[in-house]
């Protein structure tokens, strides 16, 4: 009987020692640009799901205003709280570099998103390569245009790096694969992320180029702006609008066919994937080129220095728009 107790005791002690190793729970914070907007509410769903699936304590925070300084403050608070990992979608990558360095110095794992030029992070996870995304959008536009005819391009502003990369990717794909298509705008038109401006640009394009068959937009508000102009003119069957946008912004024009295809990435998946990557680093697992995070679109990551690219693009037409609530 005594022997049995001793054995039980030993088993119990060993179990006590092993259990934290077997199921260590990490605290992981995801810091976003701006709290409360639809995009990051959707990301919160992904982070919550990660917490439920894995049992780690994962949560999402962000400043009430889009302000780089406020975001830095939040990260400072998290360092003081002693979280295990921080996933950041920086408002301005340059502005968070010093505070992220401090976090890393204290042994906190740092993962970033939408910041391919970041220096102070273990990894930066991008939903996709911008040029490849642009090329994909061009494939859609070309298929609606029958691979021929005139098209125009639009960006939020010529200084927006992401928008320019999307457009460059599209135009290069067109030159390489669709020689029958012709770009009429020498440099992309600017819409300043303003829906009214995009609408007016589109109206003017229709006046200036009577043979126009398509437009590749960039700002999320440009597709609905152009779509409205197309719909008002009753040209849904002739002029095709394709570009990045969200269902919440472009849904009514997808329905009427004034906007044909919109592309984006799902912030919920991005949040989930970032948290998963953070845990991998915390557990000391090796991050390799071509690895699978087990999240849709992040199954075969391409490694480029510190940056990991997924293929997590989502393309939405009127047929699958009901699956997205943001």
């Amino acid at each position: 009987m005594k022997k049995f107790f001793v054995v039980m005791m030993v088993v119990f002690l060993v179990a006590l020692l092993v259990s934290p190793v077997m199921a260590k729970k990490y605290t992981i914070a995801t810091v976003v640009k701006l709290d409360g907007i639809a995009w990051f509410e959707r990301m919160r769903e992904g982070v919550k799901k990660f917490a439920q699936d894995t049992g780690h304590e994962a949560f999402l925070v962000g400043p009430p205003r889009a302000d780089a300084a406020l975001q830095v403050q939040i990260i400072e608070d998290l360092i003081a709280q002693g979280v295990d990992a921080i996933c950041v979608v920086p408002f301005s990558p340059e502005a968070v570099e010093p505070v992220l360095k401090r976090a890393m110095d204290q042994g906190i794992v740092v993962i970033t998103h939408e910041a391919s030029n970041i220096q102070n992070a273990h990894w930066d996870l991008e939903a996709f390569d911008n040029y490849a995304f642009g090329a994909k959008l061009m494939d859609y536009l070309a298929s609606y245009m029958g691979e021929e005819g005139e098209y125009a391009t639009m960006v939020g502003s010529l200084t927006s790096k992401t928008h320019m990369e999307w457009i460059t990717g599209s135009v290069e794909r067109q030159k390489e694969k669709y020689p029958q298509m012709k770009l009429v705008t020498e440099s992309p038109l600017e819409c300043y992320d303003d829906q009214t401006r995009a609408y007016e640009n589109m109206k003017e394009l229709l006046r200036t180029y009577p043979n126009l068959r398509g437009v590749r937009t960039s700002a999320s508000t440009a597709a609905p702006g152009c779509g409205l102009a197309v719909e008002e003119a009753g040209l849904q069957d002739r002029v095709h609008v394709v570009g990045p946008s969200l269902v919440s912004l472009s849904g009514q024009y997808l329905k009427t066919g004034a906007v044909k295809v919109i592309g984006f990435w799902d912030p919920a998946d991005a949040g989930y994937a970032m948290n998963k990557l953070a845990v991998m680093v915390l557990e000391g697992q090796e991050v390799t080129d071509g690895m699978d995070l087990g999240v849709p679109g992040y199954n075969k990551l391409r490694m480029d220095g510190r940056v990991l690219y997924g293929e997590a693009w989502v393309f939405v037409t009127k047929d699958n728009m009901d699956q997205y609530n943001f």
């Binding site: 006046r207 126009l212 008002e232 003119a233 009753g234 002739r238 002029v239």
Partner: peptide, 8 residues
């Protein structure tokens, strides 16, 4: 009718 074939 506009040049491009739509209405305005």
């Amino acid at each position: 009718t506009t040049l491009i074939g739509g209405t305005n």
